[in-house]
Simulated scan of single mutants.
Amino acid sequence: MDRIDKKIVAELQRDGRLTNVELADRVGLSPSPCLRRVRLLEEAGIIKGYRADVDRAAVGLTTTVFIEISVDRHSKQNADAVQERLAAIPGLVSCHMVSGNADFLAEVVVADHAAYERVLTEHILTMEMISNVRSNFALRTICVQQPLALSE
């Protein structure tokens, strides 16, 4: 990625609905070369997609929970099984395999504590290889998805 590609990515992170003409103007290119670069960035997998940023509270999802999950018997089979089951959880926003006290860190967004209790009892605690679950409820969101700072 050269300097222009990084500018294109930065502008699209700020506003994914920019027209090609607007984007070209912002990065100092004419529309045709700009569109070619965007398509190459998409084909290379650098730009993975475009999506709407939904206000969680406006759609009734007011509770964010960060769940630390520890696995009892470490094996590739258990890790694969946990990953598959976690990916199917309703309201899952992100999930990471991590180092430290827990093995997985999942972010789940639900309507309320009762909805989270259902996620916990129906999806997480039903996994026999889970040894420990720790739920951390977000009190306030400070920052959400800032654009990646790509160095020049």
Rank of each mutant, 00 (worst) to 15 (best):
D2E: 11
R3S: 13
I4K: 09
D5T: 00
K6G: 10
K7V: 03
I8K: 00
E11F: 02
L12K: 14
R14S: 07
D15N: 14
G16N: 10
R17P: 02
L18G: 03
L18Y: 01
L18Q: 15
V21R: 15
E22F: 09
A24F: 00
V27Q: 10
G28A: 12
L29D: 07
S30K: 08
S30A: 05
P33Y: 02
V38K: 03
R39Q: 11
R39K: 09
E43A: 12
A44M: 07
A44G: 14
I47E: 04
I47V: 09
K48V: 10
K48C: 08
G49Q: 04
R51T: 11
R51V: 03
R51C: 08
D53N: 07
D53G: 03
V54G: 03
D55V: 10
A57M: 10
G60F: 13
G60R: 06
T62G: 15
T64C: 01
S70V: 11
V71M: 11
R73K: 06
A81V: 00
A81S: 04
E84F: 00
I89R: 01
V93C: 09
C95F: 00
C95Y: 03
V98F: 05
V98A: 05
V98E: 14
N101C: 05
A102H: 11
V108Q: 01
H113I: 14
A115G: 12
Y116A: 06
V119E: 01
E128H: 04
E128K: 04
M129K: 00
S131Q: 07
N132D: 06
N132A: 15
R134F: 07
A138Q: 14
L139K: 04
T141G: 10
I142Y: 14
C143P: 00
Q145R: 15
Q145T: 13
Q145F: 03
P147L: 00
L148E: 12
L148H: 06
L148G: 00
E152M: 09
